[in-house]
Design a protein around this nucleic acid. Sequence first.
DNA 1: TATGAATGAGTATTCATTCAT
DNA 2: AATGAATGAATACTCATTCAT
Lengths: 222, 222, 222, 222
Amino acid sequence: MSPATPAKSRPLRKRDAERSKRAILEAALVEFSEHGHAGARIDSIAERSGISKPMIYSYFGDKDDLYAAALREAYVQIREGERDLDLDNLAPEDAIRALVSFTLGHFRSKPWFISMLNTENLRGGTTVRKISDVSAIQSRLLVQLREVLQRGAEEGVFRSGIDPVDFYITIASICYFPISNMHTLRTVFKCPMDETWMEQRRIDAEEIAIRFLRPDPGGRDG
Amino acid sequence: MSPATPAKSRPLRKRDAERSKRAILEAALVEFSEHGHAGARIDSIAERSGISKPMIYSYFGDKDDLYAAALREAYVQIREGERDLDLDNLAPEDAIRALVSFTLGHFRSKPWFISMLNTENLRGGTTVRKISDVSAIQSRLLVQLREVLQRGAEEGVFRSGIDPVDFYITIASICYFPISNMHTLRTVFKCPMDETWMEQRRIDAEEIAIRFLRPDPGGRDG
Amino acid sequence: MSPATPAKSRPLRKRDAERSKRAILEAALVEFSEHGHAGARIDSIAERSGISKPMIYSYFGDKDDLYAAALREAYVQIREGERDLDLDNLAPEDAIRALVSFTLGHFRSKPWFISMLNTENLRGGTTVRKISDVSAIQSRLLVQLREVLQRGAEEGVFRSGIDPVDFYITIASICYFPISNMHTLRTVFKCPMDETWMEQRRIDAEEIAIRFLRPDPGGRDG
Amino acid sequence: MSPATPAKSRPLRKRDAERSKRAILEAALVEFSEHGHAGARIDSIAERSGISKPMIYSYFGDKDDLYAAALREAYVQIREGERDLDLDNLAPEDAIRALVSFTLGHFRSKPWFISMLNTENLRGGTTVRKISDVSAIQSRLLVQLREVLQRGAEEGVFRSGIDPVDFYITIASICYFPISNMHTLRTVFKCPMDETWMEQRRIDAEEIAIRFLRPDPGGRDG
DNA sequence: TATGAATGAGTATTCATTCAT
DNA sequence: AATGAATGAATACTCATTCAT
């Protein structure tokens, strides 16, 4: 169709640019999550990504813009992880257990996410506010969770009237803290923080979630 | 002999090393918790405290040392808060509710604590490890908590075999996350984060703790 | 094709790393030799060289590294000066006289050398020890000197058994002190330190060297 | 005569002040000679001497003044050392040998002197010029030396017309350099710098001095 | 498009010097 | 007379950002 030379070089360049952007973004995510906003170094991101600093500036703008992109990327990765999660085909209790288990596993396997959230909250959330689409990101999860809670309430295994957002925050709380505060907990409370300890955490976390949802026994038996 | 001119008896206003040290420490706590380790500025601490930079270095060493002192101070403040807490004279359930309530209240009223913990964990806990006495600081609380759990188990209102450290981590988890992640939660989940929302959190948190401790009803009723 | 516009062939005026490095090194040599290690100012070196401070750090490392580079440069300049010196084609006595004359001349014309040596010895020689190739630098001179002494001994005009290193140190001693201590000598001994005084020094220095080498007359005449 | 109390307290105080001044001066001499002018620290001098900084300032003025006092002290110590030297009762050659030997020994045993001279010359001699009486200090030595040279010339063992200042500079040169440049010589020329090497230096130095003074053999024998 | 070279504006830290007691 | 407390003015070093090619 088109003459040979430009036909191949253009898309290739575009693809290269895309590849460079990704490399930068991933390097930035690691750097910001390891060192926080102020501690992160553009030099270091350039080195990690193998892309020169001027390119970083030309692709992303200044440090704050790059930080925003990295923060957004952290949320995007979480969303992608949640795709695998399918609560609709599980019994309500199993669905809740699956969600807890998934959340804890997710926090552990993507340490950037927690670090980025910590960093962003330390900064007062000024950047997350600017990422316009961020609230849409976790909506699919909430929709599923609302459906599960509803189903459980109808089946009589869960209390009714549980707000999915509040409940998700509860789940997130139990999963977040032991990981985000791993280092201080290890030192202050001498927690081993090994696989078995974490596994026990998971079991407890599921139990906490389920017990919280369970209908008030007094109302039935009394 | 001479009139009440407080020549030497009352504490000096200027040239008082102890007072200066405290001023620096408090300013450092605020600065580090607001900006993290890398983001904190010694200049700013000097200005906040009204003490010149050379004195800061003379009293505390370098930036890292000052950061360590501020982190330690955060833990000390928590310990001091816990002094008022007297779990021994409360019924087990009330004691747990009081502990949850206190923890959440402390996290809210002393935002430095959460910020310092976040910062320290972001940094991999290298500093907390150097503060030798930090693990002793929260031991009193754990002793009390163990006693309450024991009492509750004996009275039959709590399950037995609950580890006080693990359980304290659960309580801390539920109280920590909504506050530490306040800004991202507000944006991502549109949480109001106002007084009523927080109050509801407190009620839920107590409920979660109590339900987790409650003996398995199935085991009793058959 | 195109006219003589030296588009790419001739060395660039700006953005030339090599040129910048040399400018920094020369400025550092002057600054360190004028003010010593502790007294030298990086700011001043930046100004003298016309290169900004960050480049200095990027090219040379920290102040100590730059000082080491400057010290090494002082030795390199001496080696370059010695290249012109050709002792092999002179009669032994003339060769010694030439060496003395050259040494004194070099000390006078490159005041950095003496200042750098003074500074380094004041510092206990910690840096020179790190410059691995520094002892190789003056070896060519010693080889030549050994040959001259040998030749003179064979011809019977010099004593035999004179160690070239020790003898070079003697020469250096006589040439070094009047220059290195110029200012105190001028004040304490009211030496004029002008051209004629220096010329007389040169004549005396040659005489001292030659007389020291001359075979013991008593040994021959009995 | 005078009432008891002030009579004893005044002189004691004065003596204490004198003792403090000496302590400061000695500490300053060590500090300046170890670190040079810019490298010396008033804090360090205070610590070494056990006297507080404000006292140092009140006794000596500012850093430059203290440096000047230390430099002067170095010269004074040399003068004191020279008191023991009595050249008048020695045969001319022996006197010269004694002077050389003494000078070398002196430079070795009072390392401050050489360090202070180095420092002062590095600084361009601005301070020594202000010490008004410094040139008088070494005059006794020069008087003795002149007398010895004269005597030697009359006895026919020395050349006549040797300027005592120039000749003293020659002696100083040979003694100064191997000590002042000890560290670089050790590294660059692999000199052992031990007792035997130094002893050999002394023997050579005497020989150099004597040979330089010896009457021209050609003039006599020819 | 791509990057090595370059720098202005900070930032931690030090040091001579003075104040208040 | 004596000193612990205090600081203004540097000074070494860093880092986000831009220039020139």
